[in-house]
Design a protein around this nucleic acid. Sequence first.
DNA 1: CCGATTCATCTGCCATCACAGATTCTTGAC
DNA 2: GTCAAGAATCTGTGATGGCAGATGAATCGG
Lengths: 234, 234
Amino acid sequence: MASTRRPETGARPAPDAAAPLHSNVHAELSRRFITGRVVPGGLLSTRGLAEELGVSQTPVREALSRLAAEGAVQIRSKRRIVVPTMTELRFRELLRCRELLEPEAAVRALPHIDGKRLRRIRRVDEAIGAAIRDGDLHAYMQGNFDFHFLIYDAQPRGILNRLIEILWLQFGPYMRVVYGRVGTANLTDQHEMAIRAIGAHDAAALRRAILADIRDGMGLIGKSGFVYARDTDL
Amino acid sequence: MASTRRPETGARPAPDAAAPLHSNVHAELSRRFITGRVVPGGLLSTRGLAEELGVSQTPVREALSRLAAEGAVQIRSKRRIVVPTMTELRFRELLRCRELLEPEAAVRALPHIDGKRLRRIRRVDEAIGAAIRDGDLHAYMQGNFDFHFLIYDAQPRGILNRLIEILWLQFGPYMRVVYGRVGTANLTDQHEMAIRAIGAHDAAALRRAILADIRDGMGLIGKSGFVYARDTDL
DNA sequence: CCGATTCATCTGCCATCACAGATTCTTGAC
DNA sequence: GTCAAGAATCTGTGATGGCAGATGAATCGG
């Protein structure tokens, strides 16, 4: 009833039949970026994605426009749509932005985290542990995202969280590559400290925990030998 | 030959004939937002803008998608495209984000500001002074934007500056309203301190100057009586 | 066998058309 | 005069088709 027409979309479960197609496309692509299912330097095409997702180019292009605004892709006119490669400069800046914004978001959200949400956070953390044991990179990255945004989003979504999401969209593809080289064995779960801080309503401790988590996860890269691509593009 | 058909585009100088239309449209609309030429709560339509700018809906839609990703507009499906109204919560968050990011960007850029750029900064600052005297709000806001981003962009554009630009896109329309009520007479030029800090290569002083400028400009609003709209829109 | 040129293909880009829901104005009944 | 029902209009949305430039492969000349 929701939508009388549905030509051949059946390929995908269709997250929300009521929402506009371009919105669903953007959501699907965002998930791919955040969970690292696209590779830095990789090429995307409107026609390819359109066919793959069972829609026309129009909503795909619109979604890609948004992703371009979010820095997740670069649209090179008359050329190609590429997932940006990582450079050392870019990575450091990304890291610095996370350090500036995420602890702030966590502290802000802290008073709004009730028992129910804390339980959900714990559950996600357990899933992360399982993903690490199973070596399931994809599940790990999704869980990590969920963990952080379950905290930040306790305070109704605002500009701050939006900016943070933009950062995640950008480093997602790269992290996947890094994790792929390091392996999940080296991943440690730094979230315990954050969970304790939340339970104790200790803002200062939560700030420290989030900061430590960011530095730990992304510090892995320094230890694993940087795998920056040369900035051949442009 | 470039385009065999050109109904009535002549209205605008066409910033860059080589760039894709949607890019130019986005640039034009961005300018309008940053200089406060759109009003919070105001409605935009793809067809209206398309006609106004002499293009078809398609590139306009794409530009609006980007602006939506940047939080400058909200696209309500099957309804309207609106410039978000300001709420106290939103405003505080915006302010906080500016405080977090802009001093950082300034300090980062400081080593890259050469004499030539500093001269340009001084020139813009003079233009701002003139705009205040003349009561030209539009010129003031453009100048203020130029001043800040002449500093931040000394370091080649990165994620940090991009995030800041997103913030400016969001509070531009609102600041215009505020300035419109307060009048330019109350505007003080806080940039002198920043310029001195740059000349002296004093990072700490520059950080303080930028922070003071942000708080001063946006603090005006508190003093002028908040004119927040009720958050009627879901 | 190697290099340069041409041609087929693929790309993003944009205009156009059609559709369905929402809004607004008109119209009608009481 | 008031209010509700219906029609005209306006909205975002999405599919389609075609254009120009870029890419890459096949072809031709050496």
